[in-house]
């Protein structure tokens, strides 16, 4: 359990807002626990990467984004999709491979998309979406739109050439990109000290002339505050920003991982900083919520997750005849 010492909030928090953050983090946690269970029942297949332990990052950062902003994520993106407001049922149906899924079942867990929500995946080639993020920001700039593009990636991705090329391009072109490095210390089984000559990822920003900040990714209020500062700067200067969120993955990399590369005790230590009980304690301590509120949240979350599963269960399979749909666009403008 969490130690009694309650963290000092980095900013004043309102009751409703606090409850909402708590609700979203618990929703992600329960949704993913359910997903893991459904994986063992073979309802969900393929790769399944859980975000358990890292929820404060996605939920915190999303608070700083508007509906017009673009979001690009990795294959570990259930949390981001939920925090972005994509319907839990549409996400679950996607993981079932049903037509009602947010990517029509074609993508599965690693490829959640929702164009209406400006949510551009679900990208499963590490580092592959960083360049795209720069391009989306460039498009906004060229069209004098005021939105920014937020791109989530792991510290492992920061070793790819793509990361360095994207940072340079974004800075060179003054592209309004918010780079969010989710540093959970491991890229699969490779600890950060084996993949980076300089382990402080935030030191890589200044080399490209990009303003940078590192934040405790287990503290949702700190993440939210840092993200708001970052987006504020991007919106006024038009320049990119790198925010490093230091966090930890409580569970295996994916469903096939014997976790030979880290000690159980290390995981247990980090679990003491679980962002959900931490926020819960804080809200209780400040008398912003009471035990009854927490029970209500848990009950509502449970209902939402169950509803999502029911929706996925009753979804439909795409007919095999439609296999080759979406290879090319159906409507081609005649010029």
């Amino acid at each position: 359990m969490v130690e009694e010492t309650v963290i000092q909030p980095v900013q004043a928090i309102e009751k409703d807002h606090g409850s909402r953050l708590l609700y979203q983090m618990i929703l992600i946690r329960r949704f993913e626990e359910k997903s893991a269970e459904l994986y063992t029942k073979e309802k969900i297949r393929g790769f399944l990467h859980l975000y358990v332990g890292e929820e404060a990052v996605a939920v915190g950062v999303m608070q700083a984004l508007s509906a017009e902003d673009n979001v690009l994520c990795t294959y570990r993106e259930h949390g981001h999709a939920l925090a972005r407001g994509i319907d839990a049922g549409a996400i679950m149906a996607e993981m079932y491979g049903k037509v009602e899924g947010c990517s029509r079942g074609r993508g599965g867990s690693m490829h959640l998309f929702d164009a209406k929500k400006n949510f551009y995946g679900g990208n499963a080639i590490v580092g592959g979406h960083l360049g795209m993020a720069v391009g989306m920001a460039l498009a906004s700039k060229k069209q004098k739109k005021n939105n920014i593009t937020c791109c989530f990636f792991g510290e492992g991705a920061a070793a790819e050439g793509e990361f360095h090329e994207a940072m340079n391009l974004a800075a060179l072109w003054n592209a309004p990109v918010l780079f969010i490095c989710e540093n959970n210390l491991y890229a699969m089984g490779t600890a950060i000290r084996y993949s980076h000559s300089v382990v402080e990822i935030e030191k890589k920003g200044p080399a490209y002339g990009i303003e940078t900040m590192a934040v405790d990714g287990m503290d949702i209020l700190a993440v939210e505050k840092a993200a708001k500062e970052a987006t504020g700067k991007i919106r006024t200067t038009g320049r990119p920003f790198l925010l490093v969120c230091n966090t930890y993955r409580f569970r295996a990399h994916s469903m096939f991982d014997a976790e030979l590369y880290r000690n159980k005790s290390e995981v247990e230590e980090w679990k003491k900083r679980d962002p959900i009980p931490v926020l819960q304690q804080l809200l209780l301590h400040q008398n912003l919520i009471n035990q009854n509120d927490i029970e209500v949240i848990n009950k509502e979350v449970q209902e939402e997750v169950q509803k999502a599963v029911d929706f996925a269960e009753t979804g439909t399979w795409e007919p095999v005849e439609e296999l080759t749909k979406f290879v090319y666009s159906e409507k081609i403008s005649e010029k």
Partner: peptide, 8 residues
């Protein structure tokens, strides 16, 4: 054949 979708 392991349901890893289009990029894998």
């Amino acid at each position: 054949g392991r349901q890893l979708a289009a990029q894998h």
